[in-house]
Design a protein around this nucleic acid. Structure first.
Length: 258
DNA sequence: ATGGTCGAGCTTCGA
């Protein structure tokens, strides 16, 4: 049976729990990587997710950032909550191995504006995580790197490339940094398949951006060559973005054959 | 018009 693996920036897990539980019941994903849980570990809603049939791991902090991975059948092994060699209090990475599948869940810094302190932190953070990914690929042929990359890979992933030209999330520097990650031996699952134009995963809350489909595709599932051979589909599920009180991101789902 | 709206948690910051 095929297995669905998903990534979703929920923008507050506590607010989004009803939507997440409904979505899990409908989609029956095997593993879901969550970003921006915005909940410290002592308040993590583990019980409700376990009742829904998922094992949980998480690495959170108060107010900002925060990561979790939920898994239906397999226990998480070799858990890491920090990029080796980078001292960073922000909870932006959570990786674990599930039945031989290595999953790295990322919440890449937003970067705010080109040239800002946060932009330099973003590039530095990506540089460190790329080195970690490269070393992980040597050890784990079955590797997925998923999450909110806060980078639109190319012009197809931008609603209005002229308006977004060299803006944060779309700059040449950010795209080059992302290409350095994929050059380690990963492919964007979404582009393994024919896709319609105008597919995005994030829409600003302001200015009715979702209704007007003024979005970016910044949430990605990157797969190693071994896993790409088993990928059978990849799509963005825009339905949760239409609900009342939505996350500003939609889940991305990839399906893998055994 | 350089705005708009969310979430957390506190009267502002980050996205």
């Amino acid at each position: 049976m095929n297995k669905k693996i998903a990534t979703w920036n929920v923008n507050s897990l506590r607010v989004r729990m009803p939507q997440l539980l409904d979505w899990l019941a409908n989609e029956q994903p095997e593993i879901v990587a969550l970003q921006e849980t915005k909940v410290q570990d002592s308040d993590f809603p583990a019980d409700a997710l376990e009742v829904a049939g998922y094992k949980v791991i998480y690495s959170g902090q108060k107010s900002y950032n925060g990561m979790a991975i939920i898994s239906r059948h397999f226990d998480a092994d070799e858990i890491i909550t920090d990029i080796p060699g980078l001292d960073d209090p922000q909870r932006r990475i959570l990786a674990a191995t599930y039945n031989g599948l290595r999953l790295i869940n990322l919440y890449v810094p937003n970067g705010q504006r080109l040239g800002s302190d946060k932009f330099h932190y973003k590039l530095e953070w990506i540089n460190h995580v790329r080195q970690y990914i490269a070393s992980q690929l040597q050890q784990h042929p079955r590797l997925l790197v998923v999450g909110d990359f806060n980078i639109a890979p190319d012009e197809r992933d931008v609603c209005d490339p002229t308006k977004w030209h060299d803006k944060i999330l779309c700059s040449e520097q950010e795209r080059a940094a992302l290409q350095q990650i994929t050059a380690c031996g990963l492919q964007d699952c979404f582009r393994l398949f024919d896709q319609p134009e105008g597919c995005f995963s994030w829409w600003d809350y302001r200015a009715a951006a979702f209704r007007r489909n003024l979005g970016l595709r910044i949430d990605l599932i990157l797969a190693s060559d071994v896993l790409c051979k088993h990928a059978v589909s990849c799509h963005i599920d825009t339905s949760p973005r239409s609900l009342e009180r939505p996350s500003d991101h939609a889940p991305v789902v990839a399906e893998f054959a055994d």
